[in-house]
Design a protein around this nucleic acid. Sequence first.
DNA 1: ACCAAAGTACGACCATCATCGAAGTTTGAC
DNA 2: GTCAAACTTCGATGATGGTCGTACTTTGGT
Lengths: 108, 108
Amino acid sequence: MTVTRRNGRDRIPPHPDVREIPLQQVLEALVDPVRRLIVSELYAAGADFSCGTIDLPVSKSTATHHFNVLREAGLIRQYYVGTSRMNSLRRDEIDEAFPGLLQALVGR
Amino acid sequence: MTVTRRNGRDRIPPHPDVREIPLQQVLEALVDPVRRLIVSELYAAGADFSCGTIDLPVSKSTATHHFNVLREAGLIRQYYVGTSRMNSLRRDEIDEAFPGLLQALVGR
DNA sequence: ACCAAAGTACGACCATCATCGAAGTTTGAC
DNA sequence: GTCAAACTTCGATGATGGTCGTACTTTGGT
């Protein structure tokens, strides 16, 4: 049978542009308190961090799920560094797509 | 047994101030598309209207439920005129409690 | 080659919630 | 007093989605 070989690049999942994501989906992503916590921390930190860095009140598999939802909504970008998955907030794109939204939700 | 008499005033349910409502609850109210439609229409109309005026893609009982959720989140004010229940958007209070939020969600 | 660290994938479970219809209430009109 | 309009209340139902544990994958270090 065929063996599939993968490198770091292949591990990167799709990153839709938030400007093509309906408001509904963005809101559904941001309504969950755990996900809003992630976004808030990224916003406040002003820097990327790995999934494991922030400590969330949920299990690892649930955390993975939340990061996925945020990525699929176009809100964060993810990339690998070793075994760590780094996350960055796609602030400019969000601000362009939904002006004022991030500020209103995360600026407290 | 005791008969309870009610007048129009007694039919008015509690109206919490949105400034005392947690962001979480406000977001949960606004994440539903039917409720966001109601808010958008109130916002665009710039005037009050009764529950039956706007035509929603749900049954009457479901509509009642949605108006209740909005009221309990401090987003709308309700009062009776005859058998009609009028609704008004509490715009100023919302803007004060969560600056930019309404604009971001409803200004399209 | 081996092992540990960091995440992911996959089911399963469970709570929440949007939805409805049917029956009830309140009001205004006649 | 009767009737209709407008809305509410009350269960029931069904779908969604957040949660977890277990097993698996990938990578880096030794």
